[in-house]
């Protein structure tokens, strides 16, 4: 059995860093726990669900996807874009965030394959951390996950001996490469967090497929103020915008995160907007996660991490919406 003392967890990060990996981990950043690049001496915060997820390391907020050298009088020359895909270990990824990778892999690889995403995905080893605790917003169990789920992970760390140790278990070849950095030991794994199933996603999907025009949407979306907090925090949401930015010498074509909650997301240049109000946008969000995505990719676009609800200033909670939808379908 491979075990790590919780108090010496940073040693593993250090060992990985020394071995040439970029290390990503939950770090306390002035009171807010973020999933970010770990640097020597930083404390790793394993206790809280970070505001960001491992998604940021595979599909960054902003990325150059094309580059042009600008010349005289509107002339330009394309400049090759170097792929940024350093060898990375993502440490302490929540099982819900690791599970989200299946949904991201699907969209970035159906038909057209996204090379830059795939390069980073291939270069990343995901070491997840089973949850011994859950809060009121967690609902992984309702969407096919589990607090100790292994989907998407190359290795998993399970809390043991009352939280004083972690048991390391490799789940893939990439995960086994790290085994040597963890010492042998003995520990008794703790019970994973207890969660109640709140709704049945299949029932929700059935109601959604038949109720696009329901008056439910108008009422359900009243509180939504149309920001992107939920989408940006979501480990699955992957909508983006392409924007050119240039100075005198160079143009960078950037892929930036975007959100279906924004009013301008679908606005045509003509002024027509297929989704003219927040109820149409909230419907799109729920439909995409529980109806469109599962129909297209055979996987839900929600892993129950609860971030959207935890962060929403207006208390929009997708699990609660699903509970209400399931009740409507009965």
């Amino acid at each position: 059995m491979k075990t790590i003392e919780i108090g010496r967890f940073s040693d593993l990060a250090q060992a990985l860093s020394t071995a040439g990996y970029r290390v990503a981990a939950p770090v306390d950043d002035g009171g807010v726990v973020r999933f970010k690049e770990w640097t020597k001496g930083r404390e790793i915060a394993l206790g809280a669900v970070p505001v960001d997820s491992v998604k940021d390391f595979l599909f960054p907020r902003s990325e150059v996807v094309a580059r042009f050298a600008l010349e005289e009088a509107g002339a330009f020359t394309p400049v090759p874009v170097e792929r940024f895909a350093p060898k990375t270990v993502a440490l302490g990824v929540r099982p819900c965030d690791a599970a989200a990778l299946a949904a991201l892999d699907a969209v970035f690889n159906w038909d057209y394959r996204d090379g830059s995403y795939n390069a980073r995905r291939a270069a990343t080893t995901v070491v997840s951390l089973a949850c011994a605790k859950a809060d009121a917003h967690c609902f992984c169990i309702s969407v096919g996950g589990a607090p100790d789920g292994t989907a998407g992970a190359d290795a998993i760390l399970r809390p043991a001996d009352g939280g004083s140790k972690l048991v390391f278990e490799a789940l893939s070849d990439k995960g086994r490469l790290l085994e040597a950095m963890v010492s042998d030991g003995q520990a008794v794994p703790d019970a994973p967090a207890a969660l109640k199933k709140r709704f049945d996603p299949a029932a929700v999907g059935r109601w959604l497929a038949a109720n696009f025009e329901s008056p439910f949407w108008k009422e359900a979306a009243l509180a939504c103020l149309g920001c992107g907090a939920c989408a940006y925090a979501c480990p699955v949401c992957h909508c983006f915008d392409l924007q050119d930015e240039s100075d005198r010498k160079e143009c960078r074509r950037l892929r930036n995160w975007d959100s279906c909650g924004f009013g301008l997301f679908t606005l045509h240049a003509s002024g027509h907007n297929p989704r003219p109000d927040q109820s149409a946008r909230w419907r799109q969000r729920v439909m995409h996660k529980f109806s469109i995505y599962p129909q297209k990719f055979k996987t839900l676009a929600c892993t129950g991490c609860g971030r959207c609800a935890r962060l929403c200033q207006a208390g929009m909670a997708i699990a609660e919406t699903c509970e209400r939808i399931e009740a409507l379908g009965r």
């Binding site: 907020r61 103020l225 149309g226 920001c227 992107g228 925090a233 995160w257 962060l311 200033q313």
Partner: peptide
């Protein structure tokens, strides 16, 4: 992250 939650 430019989520514009502040603006909303």
């Amino acid at each position: 992250t430019r989520c514009y939650a502040c603006r909303a």
